[in-house]
Each structure stands twice: as C-alpha cells, then as structure tokens.
C-alpha cells in the first residue's frame, strides 16, 4: 500500500480542525441559532425607530447600541450552551472519543478542534454583527477597540469553558442539551436581552454583574464608551474561564 503525498494529508491537527468546523456548520445549530437568528434580530431591531432613544444611565448609548454587544454575547451563549456540549457529549455517548483513543492522535485533540471550530464561528459572528450594525445602521465601533477585543476574548474563554463543564458533568447528549437550554435563558436575561442591565432593579443589577454574560456586557459597555473595561467585569470573566476549565478537566470522562 503506497503512502500518500504529505501535502495531500496535511497535519492531523489541521485536518481535525477543518473536519470539526465542517461538522459544526453541517450541524446547523451554530450557523442558524448562533449567527442567523441574532443577525435577523439585529436587522429587525435596527429598523425600529423607538430603539434609537438613549437609555437612561448608559452614558448616551441607545437601546439599539446596547443590542449589538448583547447579540454578540447571544452568539457566544448559543455556542457554549447548545453547540459545543451537545456535540461533545454526543461524541462521548457514541464512542467517537473512545475510537479516537485507539489512534495516535487521541481524543483530547478532538476536543481542542471543537473548541477552535466554535471559536472561529464566534469570531466570524462578532465581526459580522459589528459590520452589519456599523454599515447598515450607523452604529459606531467600540471606541476602545483593544479593550473590546480583550473583553470579547475573555468572554469567549469563559463561555467555552462553561460549555466544556456542561459536557463534563452531563451524563449524555440529552442531559447536556437540557442543561445548556436551562442555562441559556437566565444567562441571556442577565446580559440584558429583555431589559437593559441599567434598567433592572438594584438586586438583579448586582447579580447581573457577576454572571458571565452580565460581566461581559459591563466590559463591552465600557469599551463602547471609550474606556478600557474596568477590573471587576474582566476579573469576573477570567475567573469563570479558569474555574470552569479547571473543573471541566477535573471531571471530564472520555467514555
């Protein structure tokens, strides 16, 4: 049996990333609910004149201005609670990870490839949302771009770590989907999907600041207003990322 040329084979890691990205797109959850749905929402909300009024206590940002980062977080939340854990728990349930254990590549790289694939989809979504909001509806980019980028990276890290933790704790694909769905709605509530955080009663507002998406929203808002995000939301996001990733690694089962 002849060996194939190396160029055609490519490296195993790169091929895995490509395969997992293709599978993510075919899975439809990420493109449909992670990108398509929030994009439609963005366009619909952008066409409502009433949402162009400034929100009290938001430094002059309008309701629609605030919806742009909320929808960026919406994308991350879908990937972390629906796309990633359902796929990985399914892999474990169906013996995909077990099968990988018998190859030189091992199952950990499948996990890594899934994370990279979801991360790539998140980057595409974030750029797309900012571009549509900017070119379509005249929403300025965050004034402090490096601050925004850092906040987004930390938010993506926190959310993907939460996704991994769901995978680690859920006994199967069904429970993983259920846990993800149950987590999604309160997380999105505290991001201000239904009521902007600044309009929430004080107690809820305090809670929001310490939820992953509420902290992400706080950091994004700082960046939009031209400041480097303050320490509390950034540290909150970093803590979620580190603790959840650590717990996920600690309790992860391959079979």
């Amino acid at each position: 049996m002849s060996a194939l040329p190396t160029a055609e084979r490519g490296s195993a890691t790169w091929r895995l990333v490509k395969a997992e990205s293709t599978l993510c797109v075919r899975d439809k959850v990420a493109p449909l609910w992670g990108i398509g749905f929030p994009l439609v929402l963005l366009i619909v909300l952008g066409s409502v004149p009433d949402l162009r009024e400034p929100v009290e206590g938001s430094g002059g940002l309008t309701y629609f201005d605030l919806y742009v980062p909320v929808l960026v977080l919406f994308n991350l939340a879908i990937l972390a609670t629906a796309s990633l854990p359902t796929t990985l728990a399914g892999y474990r349930e169906n013996g995909v990870l077990r099968r990988m254990r018998t190859t030189p590549v091992g199952p950990a790289r499948v996990l890594a490839a899934q994370l990279v694939a979801n991360f790539a989809i998140a980057v595409v979504a974030m750029v797309l949302f900012l571009a549509v909001a900017g070119f379509g509806f005249g929403v300025d980019l965050p004034q402090h771009l490096p601050g925004f980028a850092l906040a987004w990276l930390l938010a993506a890290g926190a959310l993907l770590a939460i996704g991994l933790l769901i995978t680690a704790l859920a006994p199967g694909r069904g429970p993983a989907t259920a846990i993800g769905t149950v987590l999604f709605f309160p997380m999105m509530f505290f991001a201000g999907l239904w009521v902007p955080i600044s309009q929430m009663p004080p107690l809820l507002r305090d809670i929001a600041h310490y939820t992953p998406l509420g902290a992400g929203m706080g950091a994004f808002q700082d960046a939009y207003l031209g400041h480097f995000p303050s320490a509390v939301p950034l540290l909150t996001l970093a803590a979620y990322a580190v603790v959840c990733a650590f717990a996920a690694v600690r309790w992860f089962r391959w079979e």
Binding site: R9, G10, A12, A19, T87
Partner: peptide, 19 residues
C-alpha cells in the same frame, strides 16, 4: 465505536489517514 454522524465516508478515511 462510532464516527460523527455528519462526517462523510471519504472525509473519515482522509482524516484518519492523516493520523
């Protein structure tokens, strides 16, 4: 021992041969 549901036959073989 299974494969991802949406992976095509040729893709699976190409992927595994890269290992």
């Amino acid at each position: 021992g299974h494969l991802p549901e949406r992976l095509q036959v040729a893709e699976a073989l190409q992927l595994y041969s890269s290992f």
